[in-house]
Design a protein around this nucleic acid. Structure first.
Lengths: 338, 338
DNA sequence: TTGTAGGCGTTATCAG
DNA sequence: CTGATAACGCCTACAA
């Protein structure tokens, strides 16, 4: 059977109340009694029942996060984020409650279970949508959360990376390397960062007087496979692009496969660039030029901000926009010789 | 405020009991009443308080897992395992409670919090130690768990990969490719799989009449960095090995770095092989020869078994030993020409 | 078919 | 300094 306060109380010959207070470290317990109680508690391996404690105190010391339940593969973006969030949560004395759900209704009901079910003190929301129902929900019930990503609605707490700027830099970089036909493999429109990143792409083209061509912009769904399909279409065009930017690294890696498969060489015949800088970007062949989002570190900052919000501390800035860092590797080719 | 059964009861003009039964789908509630109650519950967005429910029912529908809290980097082995476990847990209607802790005392107390604190119905134990205090604890309190890895004690439920066989195959493979000086970068002795894998290495050497040399066996700690250090030592020997096997992929990748740094070429001048087949093994340059542990799939199976144990169903086999699969890639060189 | 009452283990209030 | 007592929200005999 489980050791409860009652067990200890009986063993020590005092009331449950006294045991509770002794263990909680209240000052109004006789030093003798306290020591005896603590000794017994340790001997019996007492462990407070957290469900009971939560029921009373409304604090769970748990952070919730819902990640997409994909068919078979683990998404490195989310895994890095989970690692960063988990590490920092633990640093603050919090555990992490993870639920893998299909996007859509299921996901939202997982939010409800966690939040309204009182299982977590706060939520981390990743991969924000344009009109994000999860954020709408959390705002409606006034539950603490921080999002990785912003939307138009200016009021919610977020940390984000300036995708427009990142994309602009990517275009500038490719132009500098001599490219004029730069294609884009786009992320799904419903994602908040899509408009941001695509905007940066367009502004990049304009800034260098390059035309925006409909046929150079293809829709992907963030998976490696969709990147490959998109690149195949691009390469089959009458006038194929000489450079391909993908809205995330996974699609960029898929695009590299398509280039290979056509017997062309990445970085020489076709330049490829991505966005995120997942670990594999470094080790891919050739290594991938990309825009770095320090995902692991962002996980830390998300938790730091969330912890303050949960504890109702002052947070000076709840809208953090990080400047991206262009990471040039071999997949975008070699510098122009002049 | 939170919507409780009481809120609904008042709204519907019935007792809490009736609401509870109506929502739980009991048969003994008037159809009229039930419909009215359900309608109100939905309108008010009722969500059962899970702490209260757990307190009563002792079921949490949560699986616990403690992962090492390393300084800065995410360990791909654990991340893959988390992905597999999380996915399958969700498939069975369970959430995953993650706690990142330093190994040792902290880790054990996280187990206690989860288990004795009643937060989880079962635990997944990864990276089993020789005399594993976590397993000792779980057995002592009769709490359901499944381990990824076995120990001498035959009675606990586990899924494992036959490391001895894997290592043997690795040695055989390298011998076939013409190597006679095969070194080993060993994992920490306290890990259960170390004896297993090292045993396979020794038996491999014996089988091919190769001497076991003390100086060819170096201790690592599973990190990339330790693999690099170990390989540097090996390569600085008067008679350096021509092939290096590491007990995990991360150390093997570190060893590759050391080879590079010395101006040698992996797969040509020195053969390298690892164990695990983490995603990066495929994309590394050159790709890494290794022994495949299907970590993601093992995560699935761990959960499947655990779910049956938690629900006290019959499990025909609670000790599963999987046969490993040798994955030959470029890091071990090219086949001997004859 | 519905309601009353008790308890899960904890913490907080209020007397003694 | 200590102990009753109530309450958190839910479930379930048992009674009506």
């Amino acid at each position: 059977m489980h050791v409860t306060l009652k067990t200890i109380a009986e063993e020590a010959g005092v009331s449950i109340t006294t045991v509770s207070r002794a263990l909680a470290g209240y000052g109004d317990v006789n030093e003798q009694t306290r020591r005896r109680i603590i000794e017994i508690a340790e001997r019996l391996g007492y462990q407070p029942n957290l469900a009971a404690r939560h029921l009373r105190s409304k604090r769970t010391y748990t952070i919730g996060m819902v990640i997409p339940r994909t068919a078979h593969y683990s998404d490195p973006f989310f895994m890095e984020l989970v690692a960063g969030v988990g590490k920092q949560a633990s640093e603050h004395g919090y555990d992490l409650l993870l639920s893998a759900q299909m996007q859509g209704e299921e996901e939202l009901s997982a939010y409800r279970r966690m939040v309204a079910g009182g299982r977590v003190d706060g939520m981390i929301v990743a991969r924000v949508l344009w009109q994000d129902p999860r954020i709408a929900y959390l705002r409606q019930v006034y539950h603490p959360f921080v999002a990785f990503g912003r939307t138009e609605d200016p009021a919610h707490p977020y940390i984000d990376v300036d995708g427009a700027e990142g994309m602009y830099q990517l275009v500038a970089h490719l132009v500098e390397y001599g490219h004029e036909r730069i294609a884009l493999i786009q992320s799904p429109r419903e994602l908040a960062f899509t408009a941001d990143r695509c905007g940066g792409y367009r502004r990049g083209l304009e800034a260098f007087d390059l035309p925006y061509r409909e046929e150079y912009v293809i829709q992907g769904n963030l998976t490696r496979h969709s990147g490959r399909l998109a690149a195949e279409k691009l390469l089959a065009l009458p006038t194929p692009p000489s450079a391909i930017i993908a809205c995330n690294d996974l699609m960029a890696l898929g695009a590299s496969e398509a280039v290979h498969a056509r017997g062309l060489r990445v970085g020489r015949d076709v330049a490829i660039a991505g966005f995120d800088d997942i670990p594999e970007a470094t080790t891919a062949t050739p290594p991938l030029t990309t825009v770095r989002q320090p995902i692991y570190g962002i996980g830390h900052r998300l938790v730091d901000m969330l912890v303050r919000l949960m504890q109702h501390e002052e947070v000076d800035n709840t809208q953090v926009l990080l400047q991206p860092e262009l990471v040039i590797r071999a997949s975008s080719g070699t510098p122009p010789t002049r």
